[in-house]
Design a protein around this nucleic acid. Structure first.
Length: 572
RNA sequence: CGGGAUGUAGCGCAGUCUGGUAGCGCACCUGAAUGGGGUUCAGGGGGUCGGAAGUUCAAAUCUUCUCAUCCCGACCA
């Protein structure tokens, strides 16, 4: 492609709307333009990167035995009513009626449609397992779209669905998809981890999120430095603490004037936060619950939600705390508290800890769970920390940020039951399909790749996702000798099936350098006055800025060989 | 939906407090020079000041309503 003919509107300045780096760079590098909130046009370069991801996904899904199909985006309400999700899905589902007053929606996901298809077409265990996927634009009317392609309302997604005759079969399929996802993200050239995800009500270890590691990620992960353990903070289990063996001391009420925060109380009493227990009030579906955690720990709301079986938990504010307990926040404690109390595991282990006295300006020391108060449940409720040992191997943990680009899930028979999707097993008995679903945010993967790979000059694409592999800079289009050489490079590289962009614009060299860096093409060949004088061109790597001065023949060989080697290495 | 902010040329902004007929940089068009890290000079085009209503002799500026966008929370590929 010739730059002079390409729609590639790069920007010197960042539009104010863009806050995160991938969004800024996608706009500046001329990859996307916004049409409305969370809805973007992919310009030629942006689309090229999206296609790269799609192609890798396709190849690996096909290799894993899945088949591609394409389902409608517009879906009838009836199907969603049948699965019960027409009511359950909420306002994220964009609904509308057509001219015949038929209710429809834009597909945010396709469990209903695929299950409907399979129940019509598959009737025998002999045809199982079957694994179907599509790559398609999804629409979810997100509450708050943000970060450009990271969370759009309209986005490109690969969604796959598997149907098995047995649990064991479904688990094997799950494993296949897990392996395929590992290959996909490796082939994208990204640094990532598969983490155990919260399975909510279904339980078990059959949900993994694939997280691209990037400081700007929305999720925090706990990963082990020694073994393969990696988990989302919501899921990361904390090891059972050791119970301290100490003599229990008598309760002692102490005055703590104006000391509400853990730090202030500890300083005032000369104790450490490990010897104090905080009482946090949450509203679980509107009902107040006191949650006890050690002073230096934080409550993990998702764990709390799962323990209580609540739909939504929310930290109560000071006003709500006072209204429900009659105690000003800061002096709350579990003794004689009039609301439900649950405690983190750790609280069981500590002896003689300090708590609020349920009275302004007072705390109570030497408190002990069981002796002085009771709780209705004890469990893992706190956020894991870097000081905790790995739950698998006991090694050191590290907390890092990640961006969720893929999610695989064993669904079981919930959808096949709801939609009465059955097949006959070898005993001629009707069985529900055992399903799994597997998603990849294709457009988000491009954004995540940029979040992970950029510098102050722009995007630094991993080779497999770059819209072009090589950019040739003709620094002096008016010089026949230089232009001739540039054209010759362009032709030769194209003949070698290298994806190449020729910057043939009548622009100053500086402009071309800046743009080449900004759009992040991995290899750059510069032809300028050094070629006119010494017959040498320059090959530069975007990643590390390494420059080699080579003769034209050497340069072509260098670029072709390195690119082929790199692609091969990633593929194998 | 709750909290915060912003809407003035394609992009980045000034002008708003204190009302007086809209400006700067970049980008764009014309011409010339320049040609290895966003070059320079000269000339030029482009604006319902987000929208509506109101106050006023006069509104980008004051008032009210409204729409849109962005950031922080709950949700998710």
């Amino acid at each position: 492609m010739r730059y002079s003919e390409l729609l590639l509107p790069t920007l010197k300045e960042t539009p104010t709307e863009a806050e995160v780096v991938s969004h800024r760079l996608l706009l500046r590098a001329g990859f996307i333009r916004k049409l409305s909130s969370g809805v973007y046009t992919y310009l030629p370069l942006g689309l090229a990167s999206v296609r790269k991801v799609e192609q890798i996904v396709r190849e690996e899904m096909n290799r894993a035995g899945a088949q591609e199909l394409l389902m409608p985006m517009v879906q009838p309400a009836d199907l969603w009513k049948e699965s019960g999700r027409w009511e359950k899905y909420g306002p994220e589902l964009l609904r509308f009626t057509d001219r015949h007053n038929r209710e429809s929606c834009l597909g945010p996901t396709h469990e209903e449609v695929i299950t409907d298809l399979v129940r019509r077409e598959i009737h025998s265990y002999r045809d199982l397992p079957i694994n179907l996927y599509q790559i398609q634009t999804k629409f979810r009317d997100e509450i708050r779209p943000r970060f450009g392609l990271m969370r759009g309302r309209e986005f490109i997604m690969k969604d796959g669905y598997s149907f098995d005759a047995t649990e064991e079969g479904a688990e094997a399929t799950y494993q296949k998809m897990y392996d395929a996802y590992q290959r996909i993200f490796k082939r994208c050239g990204l640094s990532f981890r598969a983490v155990e995800a919260d399975t909510g009500t279904i339980g078990g270890s059959f949900s993994h999120e694939f997280m691209v590691l990037a400081d700007t990620g929305e999720d925090t992960l706990a990963i082990c430095k020694h073994c393969d353990y990696a988990a989302n903070m919501e899921k990361a289990t904390v090891k059972q603490p050791v119970s301290l063996d100490r003599e229990l001391l008598p309760l002692q009420k102490v005055e703590t004037p104006g000391k509400r925060k853990v730090g202030a109380v500890c300083e005032f009493l000369g104790i450490s936060p490990e010897e104090l227990v905080k009482t946090m009030v949450y509203l679980a579906d509107g009902d107040p619950v006191a949650v006890l955690v050690r002073g230096d720990h934080e409550v993990q709301p998702v764990k709390l939600k799962n323990m209580l079986g609540a739909v939504e938990v929310e930290l109560a504010d000071d006003k709500q705390v006072f209204e429900t307990t009659g105690v000003p926040s800061g002096y709350l404690g579990p003794i004689n508290l009039n609301i439900k109390i649950v405690a983190d595991l750790e609280v069981e282990g500590i002896k003689n800890f300090t708590i609020g006295a349920n009275e302004k300006n007072y705390h109570v020391q030497n408190t002990n769970l069981g002796r002085d108060f009771k709780v209705s449940q004890v469990g893992d409720l706190r956020q894991i920390t870097e000081d905790d040992p790995c739950p698998d191997c006991g090694g050191d943990l590290e907390l890092t940020r990640g961006i969720e680009v893929g999610h695989i899930f064993k669904l079981g028979d919930s959808y096949s039951k709801a939609l009465q999707a059955t097949f006959q097993d070898s005993n001629s008995e009707e069985q529900n399909f055992i399903m799994g679903c597997y998603g990849i945010g294709v457009s988000r993967t491009v954004a995540a790749a940029i979040e992970q790979n950029h510098d102050e000059n722009g995007i630094v694409f991993p080779l497999p996702l770059a819209p072009f592999q090589v950019i040739i800079l003709n620094l002096d289009p008016k010089n026949e000798q230089i232009t001739g050489a540039a054209e010759s490079f362009y032709n030769q590289l194209q003949q070698e099936s290298i994806e190449v962009l020729l910057d043939d614009r009548d622009e100053r060299p500086g402009v071309k350098f800046k743009d080449a860096d900004l759009i992040g093409i991995p290899y750059r060949i510069t032809i300028g006055k050094r070629f006119a004088k010494e017959g040498e061109v320059e090959v530069r790597m975007r990643k590390d800025g390494l420059i080699k001065s080579l003769s034209p023949d050497e340069a072509v060989a260098e670029v072709v060989n390195t690119i082929r080697a790199e692609i091969k290495a990633i593929r194998d």
